[in-house]
Computed example of a mutant assay.
Amino acid sequence: MPIQVTCPSCQTTLKTADSSAGKRAKCPKCGGIIEIPAAPPAPADDEYALEAEHNPLAGFSDEELSNGPATPAASDRKPCPACGEMIVRDAVKCRFCGEVFDPVLKKQEQKARQATGEGADMTTGDWVVAILCSGIGCIAGIIWMIQGKPKGKKMLLVSLAVQGFWLIIQVLAAIGGAGR
């Protein structure tokens, strides 16, 4: 017995086979996502039951049926402001670069990152840059601070401390050399 569904986007009524129950499909008319419900219970043997008439839009092809979400139509997409990839128009987070657009969700992610200490510890490479290339370490620390990464402040302070250490060594060497 075919399942009758209505597209939530264009309100077109469609019919599909029982085997499509519980799946998602694209509407052949507008491309909207349709959730196909479970098949209704079969009616008792009713000699007066009418056969559904054939409609060319009635069934979904195998390509239209999927177990996962269907891709939205091109008109339902916009470029991500951060990376430029095409994303769903009402997306709250870019699936490509991870940029969050919803201010409430953005604050929640920042709090979670701070609570777990994610990004607070400097890697070995960060330490090497901060000590051996302290000028670059200062720049990286400032950039990370602007981005809101907790390790930015630590990187800046370590790099400045190394700069200060080498300045003291240079001053002591200049004083020692002038005394001779």
Rank of each mutant, 00 (worst) to 15 (best):
M1H: 11
M1Y: 10
M1V: 11
M1E: 08
Q4I: 14
Q4S: 13
C7L: 10
P8Y: 04
S9K: 13
Q11R: 14
Q11C: 08
T13H: 05
T13I: 14
L14S: 12
T16H: 15
S20G: 09
K23V: 09
R24L: 15
A25S: 15
K26P: 07
C27Q: 11
P28M: 12
K29G: 05
G31L: 04
G32T: 10
I33Q: 09
I34F: 10
E35L: 15
I36E: 12
P37Y: 08
P37E: 05
A39Y: 01
P40Q: 06
A42Q: 02
A44Y: 00
D45Q: 11
D46A: 11
D46P: 05
E47I: 09
Y48N: 13
A49L: 12
L50P: 00
E53R: 11
E53V: 12
A58M: 04
A58E: 10
G59A: 15
S61E: 12
S61T: 15
S61K: 07
S61R: 08
E64R: 15
E64S: 14
L65I: 15
L65H: 14
S66L: 10
S66W: 06
N67F: 13
A70T: 15
P72N: 15
A73E: 14
A73K: 13
A74F: 10
S75N: 14
D76I: 09
D76N: 12
K78H: 04
A82D: 11
C83Y: 05
C83K: 06
M86K: 08
M86W: 04
M86P: 02
I87E: 06
R89I: 09
C94L: 10
G98L: 10
G98H: 05
E99V: 01
E99R: 01
V100K: 03
F101H: 08
D102Y: 03
P103C: 12
K106L: 09
K106I: 02
K107T: 12
K107L: 09
A112G: 00
R113G: 03
R113A: 10
Q114T: 00
T116K: 11
T116I: 01
E118Q: 02
E118D: 00
G119F: 01
G119Y: 00
G125C: 08
D126Q: 05
D126H: 05
D126R: 02
D126K: 02
A130P: 03
A130H: 02
L132V: 09
C133S: 06
C133E: 02
G135S: 08
G137S: 04
G137N: 03
G137I: 03
C138D: 02
C138H: 03
C138T: 06
C138K: 01
I139D: 01
A140D: 07
A140K: 09
G141D: 04
I142M: 07
I143M: 01
I143A: 03
I146A: 00
I146Q: 00
Q147H: 01
G148K: 00
K153G: 01
K153H: 00
M155L: 07
L157P: 01
L157I: 08
S159P: 06
L160C: 09
L160N: 04
V162F: 05
Q163R: 02
G164L: 09
F165Y: 11
L167K: 04
L167Q: 07
Q170G: 07
V171P: 06
V171T: 13
A173K: 07
I175V: 14
G179T: 13
R180C: 06
